[in-house]
Design a protein around this nucleic acid. Sequence first.
RNA 1: GUGCCCAUGGCUCAAUUGGAUAGAGCAAUUGCCUUCUAAGCAAUAGGUUGCAGGUUCGAGUCCUGCUGGGCACGCCA
Length: 570
Amino acid sequence: MNLYKYVSEKLNEKLGFDAKLEIPRNRDFGDFSTNAAMVMAKSAGKNPREIATELLPKIRELDFVSDASIAGPGFINLKIRDDFLWNAVQTAANITKSDKPMTIDMDYGAYNVAKSLHIGHLRTSIVGDTLYRLGRAIGHKMISYNHMGDWGRSMGMVIAWIEKLHPDWPFFRDNFDASADYSKYAMPIEELDTYYPSAAALAKTDEKFMERAQIITAELQNGHPGYNALYNVFIPISLQSMDKIIRKLNMLSFDNNLGERNAAKYAEPVEKILRDKNLLQQSDGAEIVVVKRNDDKKPMPPVMFRNSREALTYDATDIMALYYRKITDNPDKVIYLTDSRQSLHFEQLFRVAELLGMFPADSLEHIGYGTINGTDGKPFKTRDGNAAGLNDIIDMVQSAVRDRVAESGKKLDDATIDEIALAALKFNDLSHDLRSDYIFEPSQITSFEGRTGPYILYTAVRLNSVLKRAGDFTVPQNANMGADERNLVMGLLDFDRTVQSAFDSRATDLVANYAYDVCQLVNTFYHNCPILRDDVDAETRNMRLSLIKTAVDVLGGALDLMGLRIPVEM
RNA sequence: GUGCCCAUGGCUCAAUUGGAUAGAGCAAUUGCCUUCUAAGCAAUAGGUUGCAGGUUCGAGUCCUGCUGGGCACGCCA
C-alpha cells in the first residue's frame, strides 16, 4: 500500500489540479501537506490563503480526511482518519509492482580475474546488489552482469609473471599440445593473488618485462594456444574466489559472469558496423572513433578502439559488451555502476552506442559513486599503505563483533556473528549518498551504537522475540491508537513509497535510512507501550501485536533489499 | 590549462529534489533495567549551511562571481 500515492491521487482528482503532496518535516502540522493553493495563487493572481479557504471544504469531503487546515503562507495540512490508517497499514509491507515493467541490464562488480577483490569493489557490489533487488521487487526483469576484467593487459602481466617463475612449463613451448590436460598446473588462490601485484611492481621498473607483458596480451587475444591454455587453468580458480566473496557478502549471484573476453568475440560484427557507418579513423597508428560534437563545451577525446599494438582497449570491449547485450537481452535500459572517475569513459561509450544506432542515449545510464576514504580524506588504505582487501575488511568487522559479543557475556553462534558484521558493513555503505565520497573509519563501523546495521537487526530481533512469546493473536478491526502507535503506523506506511523512489532515483541510501527511521519509531513505541504485561487489556495487546508483526514484515523487507537477514537472537 | 563533482554543529552524515522552526548518530553532561532483549529509551548543550551578490511568496537546495578541496582529460582498466 502506497499511502502517499493514494492520497496524492485522490486529492488531485478532487481539486482537478496536479498539486504536489508533501510530508511535513514537522509532524505537528499534520500527516500530509499540499502547496496547491500557493501554486494556484500564482497563475490566478490571488492571495494563497484566500484560495486555500476556497479549497478547504472540498478537501474535507474526502472520506479518508479527518481534518484539514490552513497554515503559514498557504499550506493546506491534512490529517488522515485513524480507521483508514489502521486498515491501510495491514498491507504496508507490500511493494507495488510497476505498471510498465522493463528489461534492465545491470553492470556492476566488474571483478578482475587473478586480482583479489579490494575496497574498491565494495560499493559496486553492495549497492549494485541492492539496486538489482529493488528493481526485481518492483517487477522489472533485471539481468546482472559481472563484466570481468579478464582480457586486458593484466592478463598479459600475470602470464608473463608465470613465465618468469616457470619458464619450463609447456605453455611457453613452440610445440605446445593444446589437446592435453593441464589441470595439474593449477595454483592455490593465495598464490595466484600475488602474481599481478608482483608483475605490476616489476613492470614499473623493468621496461623489457612490460613490453613482454604487452606482447603476451596481444598474442593471448589473437588465440595463442599455450597462453590460452594457461589462462584456462587460472580462470576457474579466480571465479571460485569471487564466488566465495559473493556468498560472504550475501549477494545474489550474477546472472552473467561475462567480461571482456566474451565481448571480444563480437569484435568482427561490431567493427563491421563501425566501418559501414564510416566511424573508424586512423590516428597515430591506432584506430579511433571521434565522438566530439560541435556544441561540446568540454573536452571530448576520441574513443580508442584498437591501440597501435593492435590490442583491443576497454573502450572497444565495452562497445562489444553492449552489442552482446543488445542481441541477447535487448534491454530497455542498461545501468552501469562504477567509480565516478569513469564518467567520461561512459559518456564516450554512450555516444558511440548512439552513433551506431544501437541504443538511444536515454536508455544508457552510468551511476558514478564516490570513493571510500580514510580519516585523512584520501582513498582508504591499510596501515602498510596498500589497498585493503575485501576479505580483510570483512574479517576485521567480524572479529570486532566477536569481541563485542564476548564483552557483553552473550553467547552467539558464528553464523549470527557473521550476520551482524555484514549488517554493520553493508548498512554503512548503503546509508551514504552514492554520489559522494565517504569516510570509512574502522572504529566507527565496529562500534554498534546508534545509527548502524546492528541497531536495525537488534530492533527486529526484539520484535520477533515478543511475537514468539505472544503466540497466536487476532488482528483487530479497529484500533484506538496513541501517539507512539500512530507515528509508527505512518512510518510503516511510507515503505512502498520509499522503495519506489529509491529505485527511481537509484538511491539505495533511501532504503537504509528509511529502515533506520522506522527502527527509531519502533523503539520509542517498544519502550512506551507494554504488550505482554498483565495489566494490558486483550484489545490493546492484539492491536500492538499486529503492529509489531507489520513492523517486522516491513523491516524484514527493507533488510532483504539490502541483502541482510534478521538473526534469531542477539 | 579545460571540464565535472563537492563544501551543513567538534567528528560522521541527513534534509521528501524549491517549502514551514536545518534533522540524526558519535563524542560531552544527565536520568531510566523487580517491565516483552539496555547493541535500547529519554533529556541538555552544540548552526550566520565556505564567502559575496542575485532569482521569488519562500533558497542548504536554482543562477553569477570568488575561496578552498576531490576527480577526469586517446594507446591502463
